[in-house]
Design a protein around this nucleic acid. Structure first.
Lengths: 329, 329
DNA sequence: ATGAAAGCGCTAACAG
DNA sequence: CTGTTAGCGCTTTCAT
């Protein structure tokens, strides 16, 4: 037989649909007797309310869209896990979207999410489509981006992290520190921190761009080749732990002593990477705080219907910590 | 102003809602002139169909529930990424659920998903709630479980992987191979493969249970303590790469030569781990094939309304490959 | 080729 | 305390 609906419960219990709805939502006055009869009827026919019909009625889906480059990347995987868990505590579901940093993919996902009447969106995508979309129908919070002036942004203190990392390398005696990054940009805050400290030390910055959507093995080849060609580089500050690990592996392969001859610091420091590679020095992002803030901000926007314009450019910058591991002198 | 609805388009275009619906879905006959007028009206008021209303009407949500222990774990993160991408190609959305292997959490998620009228469920959860639920309203496919007899299961060849790993350790000269696993069980196929090869070699199996929902650092402590107390262990077969890495780290710390004095093989071999730790020997699961099969099976169940009973116990066992790395002699 | 009316499953006025 | 009625936004008979 077909799925029982509210009307079926009403019929079995011998009451009106309204009454059933009332006991379901615990609204209004109902006699204990009726309540019991209704509940019994529900149990009897194994009734489950249809959330879609409800959503249509209240024009609220209780769904949040999560747009990330890819949860295959532990940084986003960890974040997605935390965000989903926290949202679940508030009875929100999460629709997962892996944009792979393709602008068109991102745009398609955004469209899809809006068509699905999501109550909000959290995005950590790199491309600019989502974060620069004109004001959306749903509240949106971005993670780890430069300010857009449009949507709130939650991120760690990238400049400070980069400064700490670079300074630590110099204090360890590095004379030539290269910075590997995905994309060169003046807005890139990790790059900015690196450049600051390098300049303060009277050195020349050396930033190598590895590209976003190229496969990991190309990054590796690029890193190896660069280090090969510049043998007097004695330190690497990488904009993520994957690049950092590749640099360390190159050093091992080449027979360089780490951190004796060659120091490395990465960025992100997810639990996954720190457990797998405890010796890797890295700037640790406060994943939990980021997730917490993103969720809190979004829910505030959704629930108290805070004025989006007011929260527009709001940014939350969370502190990082340097994990010194054993690739730093 | 409020979101434009289909009726608004109809009014602007000077036609009936039915006609608008027709051009929207490309159904029935409509004159080119009308079609154009309607499309223009849509563009004019920036109309987007409401997917929720549609879902209610067609009683089909185009949503798949994905229940995993946690996408913070690269194995599930990678799988989630692939599954979501493949489902997106077929216009299905994914609702993400991290059950953390808590049976009650899993049960709650399942309830939620059914209330939300998902068209199907894919689960890789360890606990038995989902996989042993009585026949559900929606098709369900499980990943990496023993057969339930109820739902189709997609998995890699755990027995073969374990056999290959254990055999490789023995061929490398190991005399005492311990197996670290999450949970001891006769149904555990990796354990079974290990025991088979150990028995064939006339040795005693040695299986250590580390527990599922304990934090990683407890696993590490447990592994270190066990190895400390049994100094003549010269090889480890771990049921995942996290345990394997811990064993390797213990060996480094203790000054044992790897693989000279101490060999290690893990399991899973996700791209993440292989990139971070290329030297770790591990049984590589065919992630892409697993995702592909899971999606294909599920869509088949959903779309051609294949008889669930027919597909019930169906299992798909995919081949693994041993990555020898450098922790294996 | 187009429209009127009914209904997907539920909730919210408004009565009583 | 409970029921009647209308409607969320869309699709779908059934007419015309």
């Amino acid at each position: 037989m077909a799925k029982p609906k509210l009307d079926d419960v009403a019929r079995v219990a011998g009451v009106s649909p309204t009454t059933v709805s009332r006991v379901l939502n615990n609204r209004g006055y109902i006699s204990q007797a009726t309540r019991d009869r209704v509940q019994q009827a529900m149990a009897e026919i194994n009734y489950r309310p249809n959330a879609i019909a409800r959503s249509l009625q209240e024009s609220k889906s209780h769904v949040i869209g999560l747009v990330f480059p890819s949860v295959a990347n532990p940084f986003y995987g960890e974040l997605a896990f935390r965000i989903e868990s926290k949202l679940a505590d508030h009875d929100y579901k999460v629709v997962l979207c892996n944009s792979q940093d393709h602008p068109e993919t991102e745009a398609r996902y955004l469209d899809m999410l809006l068509a699905n009447q999501v109550d909000g969106v959290i995005t950590g995508a790199h491309s600019d489509v989502v974060a620069n979309a004109p004001y959306l129908a749903a509240p949106l919070v971005t993670i780890d981006r430069e300010e857009t002036g449009r949507y709130p942004n939650i991120r760690c203190d990238n400049v400070d992290g980069a400064r700490q990392a670079t300074r630590a390398l110099l204090e360890g005696g590095a004379r030539r520190v290269v910075h590997f990054t995905s994309r060169i940009s003046d807005h890139n805050l990790r790059q900015r921190g690196y450049r600051q400290v390098i300049a303060e030390a009277g050195l020349q910055p050396e930033v190598v761009e590895l590209g976003f959507d190229t496969p990991p093995e190309e990054h590796r080849a690029h890193i190896y080749a660069y280090l090969e060609q510049h043998p007097d580089i004695d330190a690497v500050f990488a904009s993520n732990d994957s690049y950092a690990t590749m640099a360390v592996q190159w050093a091992y392969k080449t027979g360089k002593a780490v951190p004796g001859d060659f120091q490395v610091v990465g960025f992100d420091g997810t639990p996954t990477v720190r457990s797998l590679l405890p010796h890797l020095a890295t700037v640790v992002q406060p994943l939990d705080a980021i997730a917490e803030q993103a969720v809190t901000h979004l829910l505030r926007l959704i629930e108290q219907q805070a004025d989006p314009a007011a929260c527009a450019g709001k940014t939350e910058v969370l502190p990082v910590t340097l994990h010194r591991g054993a690739t730093l002198r």
